Measured scan of single mutants.
Amino acid sequence: KTYTFRVRIVDEETGEEKEIEVTAKSEEEAKKAAEELKKKYPNLKVELE
């Protein structure tokens, strides 16, 4: 079973919002993916929905 999570990304500089879908095998995995995004884009606000 896989879970699909919507991750909302807000670029703090431009105020631009993007939504991406993360497919993960567990909620834990999705959280890790969101953390990776935060590391990659430090000025983005990442929200897991």
Rank of each mutant, 00 (worst) to 15 (best):
K1H: 08
K1G: 10
K1D: 11
K1C: 14
K1M: 08
K1R: 11
K1W: 10
K1V: 10
T2E: 12
T2A: 06
T2Y: 13
T2P: 07
T2G: 07
T2R: 10
Y3M: 06
Y3L: 08
T4Y: 09
T4I: 12
T4N: 06
T4D: 03
T4H: 07
F5C: 05
F5P: 00
F5H: 01
F5L: 08
F5M: 05
F5E: 01
R6V: 15
R6N: 06
R6Y: 13
R6L: 14
R6W: 14
R6T: 15
R6K: 14
V7T: 00
V7H: 00
V7F: 14
V7Y: 10
V7G: 01
V7K: 00
V7S: 00
V7A: 03
V7Q: 00
V7E: 00
R8N: 07
R8I: 15
R8D: 02
R8K: 14
R8F: 13
R8Y: 14
R8G: 03
R8P: 02
R8S: 06
R8T: 13
I9E: 00
I9P: 00
I9W: 14
I9H: 01
I9G: 01
I9Q: 00
I9K: 00
I9Y: 13
V10R: 12
V10K: 08
V10D: 01
V10Q: 04
V10P: 03
V10I: 13
V10S: 06
V10H: 07
D11I: 04
D11S: 03
D11G: 00
D11V: 04
D11E: 02
D11A: 01
D11M: 03
E12M: 14
E12T: 12
E12K: 09
E12R: 09
E12P: 15
E12C: 14
E13Q: 11
E13H: 09
E13Y: 09
E13I: 12
E13W: 07
E13G: 05
T14E: 01
T14A: 03
T14P: 00
G15R: 02
G15Q: 03
G15N: 03
G15M: 03
E16I: 08
E16V: 08
E16A: 07
E16R: 05
E16M: 07
E16N: 05
E16D: 06
E16P: 00
E16S: 05
E17A: 09
E17N: 04
E17K: 05
E17T: 13
E17C: 14
K18S: 11
K18A: 07
K18W: 15
K18D: 05
K18V: 14
K18L: 14
E19L: 15
E19K: 06
E19M: 15
E19D: 05
E19T: 15
E19P: 01
E19H: 14
E19Y: 15
I20Q: 01
I20Y: 09
I20N: 00
I20E: 03
I20A: 01
I20W: 13
I20D: 00
E21C: 12
E21M: 14
E21H: 11
E21G: 02
E21V: 14
E21Y: 15
E21L: 15
E21Q: 10
E21D: 06
E21N: 06
V22T: 02
V22R: 01
V22G: 02
V22Q: 00
V22H: 01
V22E: 00
V22S: 01
T23W: 13
T23Q: 13
T23P: 04
T23N: 07
T23A: 06
T23M: 12
T23K: 11
A24W: 05
A24S: 04
A24K: 02
A24M: 05
A24C: 14
A24N: 01
K25V: 13
K25C: 14
K25W: 13
K25A: 14
K25E: 13
K25G: 13
K25T: 13
S26C: 06
S26E: 02
S26L: 01
S26I: 01
E27A: 11
E27Q: 09
E27K: 09
E27V: 12
E27N: 05
E28Q: 07
E28V: 10
E28H: 08
E28N: 08
E29N: 03
E29Q: 06
E29A: 08
E29I: 04
E29F: 04
E29C: 11
E29D: 11
A30F: 11
A30C: 08
A30P: 00
A30T: 01
A30H: 00
A30S: 02
A30N: 01
A30M: 08
K31Q: 11
K31V: 10
K31Y: 13
K31R: 14
K31T: 07
K31S: 07
K31A: 09
K31I: 13
K32I: 13
K32L: 13
K32Y: 11
K32M: 12
K32H: 11
K32N: 11
K32V: 10
K32W: 11
A33K: 14
A33Q: 10
A33E: 06
A33G: 04
A33S: 06
A34G: 04
A34W: 15
A34S: 05
A34V: 15
A34N: 02
A34L: 15
A34Y: 15
A34F: 15
E35P: 00
E35K: 05
E35C: 09
E35Y: 07
E35V: 08
E35S: 08
E35W: 09
E35L: 11
E36C: 12
E36T: 08
E36V: 09
E36L: 11
E36D: 10
L37S: 01
L37Y: 09
L37Q: 02
K38E: 05
K38W: 09
K38V: 12
K38I: 12
K38F: 12
K39R: 09
K39V: 09
K39N: 08
K39M: 09
K40D: 04
K40S: 06
K40G: 04
K40H: 07
Y41H: 05
Y41W: 09
Y41E: 02
P42T: 05
P42Q: 05
P42C: 06
P42V: 04
P42Y: 03
P42M: 03
N43G: 13
N43P: 03
N43L: 08
N43H: 12
N43I: 04
N43W: 11
L44S: 11
L44E: 03
L44H: 14
L44K: 09
L44D: 03
L44C: 15
L44R: 05
K45S: 07
K45H: 09
K45A: 06
K45N: 09
K45C: 07
K45L: 10
K45W: 07
K45I: 13
K45T: 11
V46F: 11
V46R: 00
V46Q: 03
V46G: 04
V46T: 04
V46K: 02
E47S: 11
E47R: 04
E47W: 14
E47Y: 15
E47M: 13
E47D: 09
E47P: 04
L48I: 13
L48S: 06
L48V: 12
L48C: 12
L48P: 05
E49N: 11
E49T: 13
E49G: 12
E49W: 05
E49S: 12
E49Y: 08
E49H: 12
